[in-house]
Structures are given as structure tokens and as C-alpha cells.
Design a protein around this nucleic acid. Structure first.
Lengths: 108, 108
DNA sequence: TGCATGCGCAACTCCGTGGTTGCGCAATCG
DNA sequence: CGATTGCGCAACCACGGAGTTGCGCATGCA
């Protein structure tokens, strides 16, 4: 339901960049920040960070709230929880297959 | 410990491609397969799949075992579990921040 | 009103990625 | 032995991602 495989890949891709991952970690303290604040945090130009934030926003990982001339971004952890569940389902699927294999081998 | 932020980003990037995600899901049944089998599964050339598998192997998500002239790939779910834990730690970090904020606001 | 700050948009460069094809080698089958 | 199958390596191409700079607009402050 939540999201098709393509959407999941998009979210993984959004997290698959060191700068964006750093942004997510920075925002994981629940404190929203302006683009300039985030830019100085990761030591990169404002526009570069703007692009990264747009990617994260498209993936649904962050939300934008414009206040006056500032654009404050905050983390939306719901997708992260979805992803964690998904990863666990994949690895659980694998574990079950291994269990069946062991049972099969054990039962001679 | 387990892996630095850059490694995590690499793993996310490895999963951030629809083809590679499909390969991982295919292999999640615990059954190793040859490159040609996987290629026909995703409807792509053998070399393209070879490249994808190399990316997944570099990220530590799959392991290669050459038998005769076949190269069988199988999933290694340990990294997936690591990632799931990581995602949950990030979102939990966020949840805690929100809880503190609510407490702060609630206590007047 | 004038100046500084924070952004958005657009153009441009650079290089990594995803895909293809072709060739050659090793292993397997008859 | 010859034919086939499974791969690896390399070259090549097209596209998009990541980053920069420059410009212009809107907001906020003195």
C-alpha cells in the first residue's frame, strides 16, 4: 500500500547522498532550520542545499514552511519508519527462507 | 561503529535504483541465482545486471560464489538489518525531540 | 527610504551512472 | 574434438546529478 517499489527506490536514492543524509541527521533533532543555516552546517553553497532539500521534499522526507523571508525545513519521520519496516520485511523474508531450508535439510 | 555516514549513504544509494531493489527483492527468498537468471528476471542485458550486482556487492548487500562457469549471487541481509536499525534510531531521535517539546509546552 | 538578508530561478560545467554492444576466454555438453 | 553456455573486460554513448555563479525579487531592519 504505502508505496510501490519505485517510490521506495526514490526514497532510498534520496538518502543515498552523504550531504542529504547529513541534512536528515541534522534535522533529526526535531528542530526546523532555514536553508542558510543548513548550508553553513554542511559547508556548501545555499543553492546546492536548496536542490538537496527539494529532493528530500519530493521524497516526502522533509516539509517546508515559509515564514516571512525564511524557508524553514523540518523532518517528517513517517517515511523513515515505513522504510525501516520494509527493510525488516525483506530481511525477515530471507530469514524465513533460511529456516525452511534448514528444516528441509534437517528432516533428511 | 558498524559503518560511517558515508558507508550508510552508499548502502542507501545501492538500494536507490529500481533494478537493484528488484534484484534484492528477488534474492530475498534466500535462493541464490546466476547472473543470467537474474538478467532474464529483470528483462535487461547480462552486463547491465553485472554492474548492478557489483554495486550491491560493494555495498555488502550480496555475496558472490563462483561455481564452475556460473557466478551465483545470494543476499546478505545483515546490512539490511543494520540499516533498519539506523532508520529507526533517526526517527526515534526525532520522536524524542517532539516528546520533549510537548513536555516543555505542556508544563507551562 | 536605503541597505542587508534570505531565497528562487536559470545557465553552465563536470563527471558519475545506467545502458548498450562487441570480443575473448573458460567451462560444460554431445 | 566441436559447439554452446556463462562470464568478464573494454569501449562507447546519453542522461542526469551535484555543484557553482550570477541576477533579481521580497522581506526585514535602521
Amino acid at each position: 500500500m504505502a508505496s510501490a517499489a519505485r517510490d521506495k527506490a526514490a526514497i532510498f536514492a534520496a538518502l543515498g547522498d552523504p550531504t542529504r543524509l547529513a541534512l536528515v541527521e541534522t534535522l533529526s533533532d526535531g528542530h526546523g532550520r532555514s536553508i542558510s543555516e543548513l548550508a553553513s552546517g554542511v559547508g556548501m553553497s545555499r543553492q546546492a542545499v536548496t536542490k538537496h532539500l527539494k529532493v528530500l521534499e519530493t521524497a516526502g522526507l522533509v516539509a517546508n514552511d515559509r515564514i516571512g523571508r525564511e524557508s524553514r525545513f523540518a523532518l517528517d519521520p513517517s517515511k523513515l519508519n515505513d522504510l525501516a519496516d520494509y527493510l525488516q520485511s525483506v530481511s525477515r523474508h530471507w530469514d524465513e527462507a533460511i529456516s525452511r531450508l534448514k528444516t528441509f535439510l534437517g528432516e533428511d
